[in-house]
Nucleic acid binder design. Sequence first.
DNA 1: TCGTCTGATATCCCTGGGCGTATGGATCGC
DNA 2: GCGATCCATACGCCCAGGGATATCAGACGA
Lengths: 304, 304
Amino acid sequence: MDRPEIPLPQLHAFVVLAEKLHFGHAAARLGIAQPPLSQQIRRLEDRVGHALFTRAPGRVALTPAGNELLPAARRALTDLADGLAAARAVGSGRAGSLRIGFAASLALTVLPGLLRTFRDRSPDAHLDIREMTTAPQIAALHDKTIDIGLLREPPSDETGLYFRTVLSEPFVAVLPSTHPLAGKRTVQLAQLAESPFVLLPRAVGPTLYDQIVGLCTTAGFTPRIVQHAVEWQTVCALVETGLGVSLAPAGIRRIRLRGVAFRRIEPGTARTRVAVAWREDDHNPLVTRLLATIGQDHPPDESR
Amino acid sequence: MDRPEIPLPQLHAFVVLAEKLHFGHAAARLGIAQPPLSQQIRRLEDRVGHALFTRAPGRVALTPAGNELLPAARRALTDLADGLAAARAVGSGRAGSLRIGFAASLALTVLPGLLRTFRDRSPDAHLDIREMTTAPQIAALHDKTIDIGLLREPPSDETGLYFRTVLSEPFVAVLPSTHPLAGKRTVQLAQLAESPFVLLPRAVGPTLYDQIVGLCTTAGFTPRIVQHAVEWQTVCALVETGLGVSLAPAGIRRIRLRGVAFRRIEPGTARTRVAVAWREDDHNPLVTRLLATIGQDHPPDESR
DNA sequence: TCGTCTGATATCCCTGGGCGTATGGATCGC
DNA sequence: GCGATCCATACGCCCAGGGATATCAGACGA
């Protein structure tokens, strides 16, 4: 790519004149007087080395050389204007693309609302949503494979990443409706000691897993896990069949199955936090915008 | 199309920096010092309204906005360079397109050589060759449907057009080889008085037609025309069948048919002129170039 | 033939872009 | 912690480009 030889204003003048084929009118269109336009064209022709217009009073016409230059000039100008507009749109966060990783358990709770309000505010933005568990999200953020992570129980020692808690929810017991405890409004954790458990595999979300098991331990028993399932949806389905019970973040109550009951647990102090994660050095305006969106939906005082 | 907002040098600097991702190297590539490059980029970013690069010593990278602008900037620059090159090629006559009308009788004589040498000198030029009789050529020149005409017996009163004679040739008698006069080296025109004639229709080339008939009249007879044919090729074919004889410009001797003989005529003073025609106000460099080509092949002293 | 329209030329002014040198400040690797 | 590297800033210079006004010259029509 060589040094550009032609000032753009000259090219603009050329294109306008080529449209009007009249110096006076073209000059008016450009908002300048006629002599400067003559000069512009003359300078351009000097640069090109050949006449671009044949002029006789009232009979301005393109030369073959001018005809050759015109489409290229047009393309260059529109390309530039379009590119500039696009860059501004992206720069201002009106457009662009954002890759978001999210924990499967959020697919029914945090994610839908977030996406909806974000899409409303940045309709031209392209969102690339992919389900990932916590550890891969952290890795993907570092890799710059994703720009935003939505995960449970953010690690506190990650360098280079920021986390902001967007939701803090209690746990609920997941019971088959045939279960004796399903009749009560709340469930004492210790009452589940004898029930078989269905849980997500530890690998999917070690922190959450450990937290759930820890709850049981605190209540005085070790849960007897009879089945793993990688999605809460599946966990609930298994519970419905009577295979066992489960403990889950309250948000999964969104999963409505006829044969499954969700019950508050006692003690209800334990909570699991959902956080948004992003790179410290990421200045992508869409990231900023998304965070602002989240900030409004989840003001700091709720995000403890 | 709006007023261009961005000076091209800034765009150039942007593209180069986006390639190198290193201010020092990019500046060297641009042949300037590093500080000016920083300024260029800064000014560009001010214009765009958003950062285009993230800079940390050694870690220069494009922002999303910059990434959006880059392809457009590249396209604009290459379009411009290409368009400029093309315009210069056309302006200098190295390339371009030329529409040439020619009389059918020249397809075998003047035209081939002309095209060959012209193609040698302007290999990138596109030639659009179309067979036309004289009157349509004149009209097409005025219409700007063709740029060059090759015709016989140029009218002398055409305003707005230039003519230059490129060939002046005598007439020959076209005889079936069975014709008694085919045995002679030359033919006295008057000896054809009794023979039936095959000629082109007058409408195809009134001047030439009148000239041929005038030859006969001068020789003391009115030719008995028994057949018309729109191409000399056909005329010769008809002569070969013995249908009649003809008078034709010497150039058609290029048409070689076994049963046809071409003989010089007496008196041999009459000549038909072939001329190239073009618009007075046509400054298409290819026209100039073609005329120059013809001028070399047919210097003024031959073109009487 | 004489206005009128159109485009070119002459002249002047001014701004901003582009470049240089000198210098400052941050980051990184040893 | 200390250079080395890299980018930004400050400042000054120059001039090409873009603008305006005034005027000229050619073509065309009434």
